[in-house]
Structures are given as C-alpha cells and as structure tokens.
Design a binder for these strands. Structure first.
Lengths: 256, 256
DNA sequence: ACCTAACTGAGTACACTGTACGAAGTAACC
DNA sequence: GGTTACTTCGTACAGTGTACTCAGTTAGGT
C-alpha cells in the first residue's frame, strides 16, 4: 500500500466542504449524519488505528451506517481526508510569542511537532496541495508572521517556513516510525540489533566498516533501546535555526 | 493505503537474502527464477509505476510465473522490499571528494537526491530499521567518513548524517509529490490555484490572511507553474550545512 | 389529500491486495 | 524403484474504494 492522497477533485465542492458552505437540502428526509460527525468518527479511528484502519466501511460502521452512505456527504475518501486535515490544523494553539524570530520559529516547530505526535496518520497523507480550509490558511499566516520584518524577501520567508515545516515533518516521521516498529515487531531496537549482530559477524566482515561499527556502537550505548527521538529533534532544530540565523545576519548587514 | 514496511521477520533469513548466502538446494527441480531476477523485475515495476503498482501478482506476471512462486524465494513482500532497497543503495557512486567536510556532505546530499529521484518509490517505504545488507553498510560508512575527524563526537557524527539524510528525504519527497500530483490531476500548480481563487474569494475573506496572500502571490509569480524544487533544495541544503558549520566552528575553538 | 420531484440509505458487484494452504509434478539420492 | 526434498501454482479468504441501482422518505405544489 502506498500513501493516501489528499483530494484533487472539484474545487467548488471541496471548498464548500472545508468552509461548511453546503446548502442544506429543502426536500427529502433529514440527513441522518453530519459532516462534523463523520469527520469526528474518522479522526477517532485514524488516531487510534492509523490511516490503514480508517476505511470507509470502518467509519460507516462506527456511525452505524452503511458504507455507501458516506458518499452522500463526501465525493470520495480524498475529500474526507482534506476535511480531517483542516480540522486537526485547527488544534494548533498558535501562541503569541514574545521574542525574536528564532523564538517564534522555535514555537512553530514545537507546535507542529505536538500535532504530528497526536495525529501520526497525518504523516502518511501526501499534501502537496493543501486543503485550502480556514485552519490551513490561519496556519500559514501564523508561520509567516514569525519571519516577517527581519529582512528576508517574500520568497525567502516562504522557503524558511517550508524548511522548518519540512524538518519537523521528517523528524517526527522518523520518531513515529521508530515507535511503531517497536509495537509491530514486539522488539526494541536493542533486541533487534542483538538478534542481527551474530549473523552479521558470521556473514560480512565487520572490519570493512570501521566507522559504521564504531559510531553505531557509540550510538547504541548512549541512547538505549528506545531511539532517542527527543535528542535528535533538538539537535536538528538547533542546526536548522542556526542555518537560518546565518542568512538573517547576512541580510541585516548587507555588505561590508 | 498507507506505507509499505521494510521487513522485520527472521533476521537469519533476511540477512541470508541480503548477502546472497542462501544455500542452494541439492535435490528437486532447479528453481526457475533467481533472487536477482525477481528483484530486477520488481525494481522495473516500482520505478515505472510506483510502489502501488508493485504487487506480488504483478511481479510474478512480469516473470511469467504464478504469484505464489515468489514466496519460494522471499518469505514475504517486506523481505523483497528489503533486498530492493539494498540493491538500489548500491547505485550510489560514493565519489571521493577533495575538499572539507562541507564539500563531502554536500556530495552525500546530492548523491542521495539523485537516487531518490531515480527511484521515487523509496520515499514511500518506511525504513526505521534499515536492511543490513552490504550496500546499506557501505553507504553509512561513506557518509560517516564525511564528518570524521572534524571535532564532532561519535553521537554528533551520527546526528549530522541523519540530519542531512532526513533533509534530503523530505525535500525530495515534497518535490516528487508535487511532480506526481500534476500528472495525477492533469493540472499544473498554477491552474490548480486559479481554479480555487474565485471560490476562495467568494467564501472566505482573503483580507484575514494578508501575509499569506502577499507571500503566496510572490511565490506564485517567481516560480511559475511547476513548483521549483531545485531552488527549494538548494536553499534548504545551504541552511542545513550552515547550521552544521556553526557547530563545527564551536567545537574547533572550544572556549574563548 | 394526493402527486411528484428531490433526496437519503444501503445492498450488490467489481477489480484489486497479501498470503495460507495444499495439490501435483520433478529430480537426486539410497 | 522408492523415498525425500524440492518445485510451481490454483484456490480461497478477508480485506479495500467506489460505481451502480433501487427502495424508501419527505416537502412543496396543486
């Protein structure tokens, strides 16, 4: 199975759903479900069982409805995912930060990290074209505000926000995958490693990879069984922000 | 559908496959297929049609065999993916670079980028526990060599390599998704945007998102229809390496 | 009061997926 | 020739998203 895709159907229909501008029907029976109810159920399932568990049948079951009923409310699964995404982006606190751009970008990174950790299924949805709902818009606005007025061009502002978001996405993805593989395999990283080492020693000459052996061992000793994702996140975020800092400083004193 | 998972079955069996140490059978009919042949066919399909197209039946068809035949050579799809991964890592040129650590890390980033672009399906395989084959080992060794002897601790070396790899992974994923969504939807980014704007204007007050509007427009004007992934890659890589540079310099003059 | 148009819910069907199971065939050893 | 190890592969199962179809329900118009 590969990635889920956020929708790319009829824009009018998608935006109607995202902004809750669906004209309510005048005739016929009252709808038994609501868009909100379906999204809530879908989120409950996705949070608990991952995106793989969130099938249309499963969501419908959760609501006591037939599978095809959901297609009265959403054109397809992709559009349901779109609304789910915009909904969870609404959970971002978007706190006001007293401080410079770095403090603000740091907050952006941490808020996004929390969100991904709370809804890991988000990491498996490809959103190259974001659902243009109210919360996605607010998120972009908030993130740009962190780097507004510090001497960057508009393009650089967008690049910087994308860089930080991309970094967080990747870091959390790695951490979540590490967490999930422990559950799925019933093995900690250390156990997994210890199960491989004897076979590796027998098969390949470990002496061919001196650096890998040395550093691998050091990493294994320092961060025991559970891969230390907090450490990796802090290290990487610091490097990324240092990199942005170098650019900001260059822009603030143009030429010597 | 969610991600594919690289295998976590029997270590002995997996390593045998990766290092080609399968004892060849003495009795019975000669096998009609080979591990190499299956991997080749699977790679051909995955490269051309993506990971979603690479089903066991599809690979077997390509080889003129029954679907279940593949399970004589691989315990399951996960193990086939493992061998596919290690195989393509073997394509990395791992060039010797004359220059400092930055030039070397830059080369690492670019080589990995090329590999991902050539085999985009790699981005949809979760490899929290890498297949410990010869090429994965060589890759890790090569990458560590870039940051050896510049004053970083072993842990920092691993963190740095992981940071660069993570950055490249994320950047290429974004670029590939952008490329694929154009194919899938038959719409360029600009067309997609223009299809949404009138509805957005009608529904939500664009005035609530001044920064998003301004920067969004600037980005749209600067990088036309196809999302300029080259630009984003170069920008981000420079920031990341600048960030690493700040650390290296701090380590090289310990305290003032 | 009644008809009709609009609407909802849901059953069935289709073409897929990975893989467990087991039947049937083949080749090398005793 | 018999046994044993080994092969290929058809069938089956429980899933998936969703197109199509049809029966049932309700509000508006007459």
């Amino acid at each position: 199975m590969n990635k889920e895709y956020s929708g790319s159907g009829d824009p009018a229909k998608s935006l109607e759903l995202l902004w809750r501008r669906r004209p309510e029907p005048t005739r016929g029976p009252k709808p038994a479900l609501t868009v909100e109810g379906i999204v809530e159920a879908a989120l409950r399932i996705a949070d608990a069982e991952g995106i793989a568990g969130m099938s249309m049948r499963r969501v419908a079951d959760e609501l006591g409805a037939g599978a095809m009923t959901l297609y009265r409310y959403f054109p397809g699964k992709a559009e349901l995912l779109d609304v789910m995404l915009d909904t969870v982006y609404g959970e971002l606190p978007r706190r006001e930060v007293d401080g410079d751009w770095r403090a603000k970008l740091d907050e952006v990174a941490r808020e996004n990290r929390e969100l991904y950790l709370r809804h890991p299924w988000m990491l498996q949805v490809a959103i190259s074209r974001p659902p243009l709902g109210p919360n996605v818009m607010a998120k972009y606005e908030y993130e740009l505000a962190a780097v507004e007025g510090i001497g960057l061009t508009d393009i650089e502002m967008d690049d910087t926000v994308a860089l930080v978001n991309g970094y967080v996405h990747g870091a959390v993805r790695t951490a979540v995958e590490a967490r999930q593989v422990i559950q799925r395999s019933g093995m900690t990283d250390k156990e997994w490693w210890l199960a491989h080492v004897p076979h590796l020693d027998q098969i390949g000459d470990t002496k061919n990879y001196p650096l890998a052996s040395r550093v691998g061992t050091a990493v294994g000793n320092e961060f025991d069984a559970p891969y230390d994702s907090d450490h990796a996140f802090e290290y990487g975020l610091e490097r990324v922000l240092d990199g942005v800092s170098a650019l900001v400083e260059k822009r603030s004193r143009p030429k010597p």
